[in-house]
Design a protein around this nucleic acid. Structure first.
Lengths: 134, 134
DNA sequence: CTAGATGCAAAGAGTTTGCACGAAG
DNA sequence: CTTCGTGCAAACTCTTTGCATCTAG
């Protein structure tokens, strides 16, 4: 379904910032930080306030459209939620990011079995050198 | 071997801050943020500057005594490096942290096989509800 | 119109840097 | 003594909040 249409039907306004940010994440399946979002929009001559970007990312996360992830850089990244849960390979050299599907279910099952712990959320990311940079 | 003795033999000074911080991480096998380290020391009447804590954590990391980890909170945590690589179960309710050994080698092998990517570092952490809080 | 969204300024965490002073060896 | 480590102040990044203003519907 169309994300923007759905939001409109729920009574949310389709402002310039909202439309541009949703478009950005839909066209570029890559985890972006708040300030990266702002920079990309600025390059496209869309001038949106820092605060607005943060609020919009929070809004889209609440709506289940974006998810927040972390590469341990001291800042949050966001990406559009896709049907299948995936993780990332981050190249230490060029900064490129590849998606990867990981069989994490068996891993989580094992963790829960060994620990009496109910896992609700997890963080799995890999850092190294990509094929191009080798 | 004794960490402090080793550092001394390498020509590093055994200052109050250094001794207290090494002791703290040796007695408490738990990931701590820089400011948590400072708070604990203050409670013990050891007054160390914020900057000194950051510099000491960086130093101990460079020395291979501590490792930096992230729970995606927007800040770094540090813990003493133990013989076996482990990960954590962080309770969303009580904030408690349990160590867990994960069979990540097979996971990393699979990732590398599927991607032409050489994995150098990874981030694997779990969040949920611990046995006590259930 | 009017609630929802925005911009601006300020503030708050976490972290780093430069520089002069202090203390371990 | 001399070099390594410390404290302090300032600055920097990322993020949040309050409030007045604007605008999509």
């Amino acid at each position: 379904m169309d994300v923007l249409r759905t939001l409109a039907l729920e009574g949310h306004r389709l402002t310039k910032a909202r439309k541009e940010i949703v478009n950005l994440f839909q066209s570029q399946h890559k985890p972006l930080s708040a300030l990266e979002v702002k920079q990309i929009l600025t390059k496209r001559n869309v001038h949106v306030n820092r605060t607005t970007v943060y609020r919009e990312l929070w809004f889209l996360k609440e709506k289940g459209i974006l998810q927040e992830i972390s590469f341990g850089e001291g800042k949050s990244r966001f990406e559009i939620i896709t049907a299948h849960c995936h993780h990332h390979l981050v190249c230490n050299n060029c900064g490129g990011i590849e998606d990867i599907i990981v069989d994490e279910d068996s891993l989580i099952q094992a963790v829960q079995k060994n620990s009496q712990f109910t896992v609700e959320r997890h963080l799995i990311e890999f850092f190294g050198v990509c094929a191009n940079c080798k």
